[in-house]
Design a protein around this nucleic acid. Structure first.
Length: 260
DNA sequence: ATGTCGATACTTTATCGA
């Protein structure tokens, strides 16, 4: 079972690229972030024609997440539990029937948090605390799950081209990194790091300052696996070549395969 | 030395978020 994640920075602009990529990569599940559209305007038909079932949690202009799955999804949850007043569309979870049992998959768009001296950073940390609490709850089911998405957190200095340049950024502040560690230390596995210890492998390159050309990237898109999923992990890779495509997203797909 | 992109609206340029 191949499970992928991609922050597409507008599904409207990226539809052609996403269709091209799924045609080549053939994921069983693709979690999308920053679709930047309401549910009604999500191009569901195009993905259905490509053989996918579609679940969407969108919002006008900002954020928005979706899950595409070859198998029909069950128990779809929109929004991250823990705060009924949270209006931002950043979390979508679904249960996907597989050959042997089910795999639960979440599409996550964790808040950016900049600037770090204001309410946006507070929101980020609170959101991470809610994600921690929810992951803890999911772990009690003792089932395979994959929390896939744009975490907007650089885990270590090996995951950024220039740690000093990012020192004061909400994506790399000690508090952000500590909160990600705390989540992983519940017993989750960073699938990429479980399969590749090469430093300076990235999933995001800023549009500005020729970042892609100079390989000035950061690794902020992660697949976090429950123990039952980690036991079945085969490969995990980053499809960086899409960053060189026409009209690219600033993020690239990351995917893993789980033994059936 | 400079360098982006996408969505939106009192729109054709400015503002916001990333």
């Amino acid at each position: 079972m191949k499970i992928a994640s991609w922050n597409v920075n507008s599904i409207k602009v990226r539809l052609g690229s996403v269709l091209d990529w799924i045609g080549q990569a053939k994921p069983d599940v693709l979690c999308l972030q920053e679709i930047k559209t309401v549910d009604e305007n999500f191009p569901a038909q195009a993905f259905e024609d490509a053989g996918y079932n579609v679940a969407v949690h969108g919002k006008k202009t900002y954020n928005g997440v979706a899950i595409l799955s070859k198998s029909p999804m069950e128990d779809i949850t929109r929004g991250l539990p823990g705060d009924d007043t949270d209006e931002q569309a950043r979390y979508l979870e679904a249960v996907i029937p597989a050959e042997h049992g089910v795999v639960r998959v979440a599409s996550i768009y964790l808040p950016n948090g900049n600037p770090p001296d204001g309410p946006k950073y507070e929101y980020k940390l609170k959101w991470m605390e809610r994600l921690y609490n929810h992951a803890k709850e999911l772990l009690t089911y003792e089932e395979p799950f994959v929390l896939a998405g744009d975490y907007n957190v650089i885990p270590t200095a090996d995951d950024v081209y220039d740690p000093e340049a990012w020192a004061g950024d909400a994506l790399f502040l000690p508090q952000s990194r500590a909160q990600l560690s705390k989540l992983i230390n519940l017993g989750l596995t960073d699938a990429f790091r479980a399969r590749c210890d090469t430093p300076h492998r990235y999933t995001f390159w800023d549009y500005q300052r020729g970042a892609w050309k100079k390989d000035h990237g950061i690794r902020i898109d992660h697949l976090l696996l429950s123990p039952q999923a980690a036991d079945r992990l085969e490969t995990c890779e980053i499809d960086a070549q899409t960053r060189g495509w026409e009209k690219p997203s600033d993020h690239v797909p990351i995917w893993c395969t789980l033994k059936d």
